[in-house]
Each structure stands twice: as structure tokens, then as C-alpha cells.
Computed example of a mutant assay.
Amino acid sequence: MKRFVGCLALAGAMSLQAGCSTINPYTGEKQTSKAGMGAGIGAVTGALIGIATSDSAKERKERALKGAGIGAVAGGGVGYYMDVQEAKLREKLEGAGVSVTRDGDNIILNMPGNLTFDTDSTTVKSSFRPVLDAVSEVLKEYKSTMIQVAGHTDSTGGDKYNLMLSQQRAQSVANILGGFGVEQVRMDTVGFGETQPIASNGTASGREQNRRVELTLLPYTE
């Protein structure tokens, strides 16, 4: 049965720290895959994209992917596959305000809230749509990549409101990616509200960092 590569843990349980060997797409040399550090990354990737823990859910997801013509990456080629994808994303997103972090064989795109949404809005800013279009171009080329779209907020406001806001913002981003041609079956949306800060909510700059949408890209493998 096909699976997602990497030591995907239960949500919030542990960080991914894969150390697989890959081939550098530029030098042709063997190297150790880059592992990103930073709060929240392991918890986000650990939330697990659409293939859930039950066998029936896995089978349904795999049938849907197969029906959409989406195949898996051979295990030995995963590192190279993600290396080249990472390089293209860095090129596309240079100067866009979106950070690209490598965590083992996964890639995390951090999209700050001040770029993506107005205050209390769930509508993606029109100025940010070209950035999502650029991301979608890469995702459409690398169809064996699954995408988790996760929304996060700061601690201002009530827990339930923040959770709802984060969920709706994640869905808005996923809808736009889908409109640009990224298959919906490859995407999973989740809202974490204020539960996974990457900075202190005690400062304005920290709260700004916590208001974000993150795309976690995971290879779909045999």
C-alpha cells in the first residue's frame, strides 16, 4: 500500500527530522536532505493529510488519487524529486514574502497573514493571488506532491472564533489553488486557531508572525 514518506507522527506529537540521502540536482553529489528547524513544523506535518489512520480511509484516498491519474514517487527518487521542487519554489517565490523551509522530505511554505488576508477577513487579498498562481504552477508540475493547507491565528480573540477563522482561511487558499488547476484530491485543509504559535503572542511582531497560512508539501510514495 502506498504511503506518505517521512516519519509522520500524530498531530502535535513530534517534529519530522528525516535524514535521507539525496542527489543534489545541481552538483550531482550525494548529500543529506536538509531538515528545517522551527516551532510548529512537526505538529503541522504530523496532522496528516487526507490519508487518515483507518485502512478504509487510506483506501478511499488512494482510489481517489488513482482515479485522478496521480501516481507515487519511487522511494529512491524522493529526495531528488523534492530537491528540484524546492529549488523551483524558491525561484518562483523570491521576493514574494513567503518563506520556504525544508523539513526532511517535506517542504513548508509560510504565508504571513498580513500578505494573505485583511484583518478578520477570510477573502484572500487580490494582491496575493499571483503568488498562489506561482505556487500552483509548481504543484501542477509535481503531481505526486500532497498539500496540507493549514490556517493559524494569534491569541487575540476567543478560541472558537480563532479556530473558525483559521479553518476558513485555509479553505480559501485551497479553493484558489484548486481554481488554478491543483487537484482537490491532493489537498487537505485544517485550522489550528491559536494553538501552534511560532512566536510570542506577547508582542505585536510575534502576533503578526503567528497569523499565517502554511502549505506543507509531502511526497506521495510507494
Rank of each mutant, 00 (worst) to 15 (best):
Glu183Ala: 15
Asn106Ser: 15
Thr116Met: 04
Ile198Asp: 05
Ser144Pro: 00
Gln196Lys: 12
Asn201His: 04
Asn162Trp: 07
Arg207Trp: 08
Arg186Asp: 06
Gln167Met: 07
Gln184Ala: 15
Ser200Phe: 00
Asn110Glu: 11
Leu165Gln: 02
Glu194Gln: 15
Arg102Pro: 06
Lys143Met: 01
Phe117Met: 10
Ser136Thr: 06
Ile147Cys: 06
Ala170Gly: 11
Arg129Ala: 14
Thr203Tyr: 12
Arg186Cys: 07
Ile147Gly: 02
Tyr142Ile: 09
Ile108Cys: 13
Thr116Ser: 04
Ser127Phe: 07
Ser166Ala: 08
Phe180Tyr: 15
Ser127Cys: 12
Asn114Gly: 02
Asn114Glu: 15
Ala174Lys: 05
Gly178Gln: 12
Asp154Tyr: 01
Asn210Gly: 01
Arg207Phe: 00
Thr145Ser: 11
Gly104Ser: 13
Phe128Met: 07
Asn210Pro: 01
Met164Arg: 12
Thr122Pro: 03
Asn210Trp: 11
Asp159Ser: 08
Lys125Pro: 01
Phe192Asp: 10
Thr123Pro: 03
Asn162Thr: 02
Tyr161Asp: 08
Glu214Asn: 14
Val149Asn: 04
Phe128Gln: 01
Asn175Ser: 13
Thr116Pro: 01
Asn162Phe: 08
Gln209Arg: 14
Asp103Arg: 10
Gly202Lys: 13
Phe180Asn: 06
Asn175Gln: 14
Gly157Pro: 04
Ala204Asn: 03
Ser126Tyr: 08
Leu217Phe: 07
Asn175Arg: 11
Val138Gln: 09
Ser144Tyr: 05
Ile176Trp: 04
Ile108Met: 10
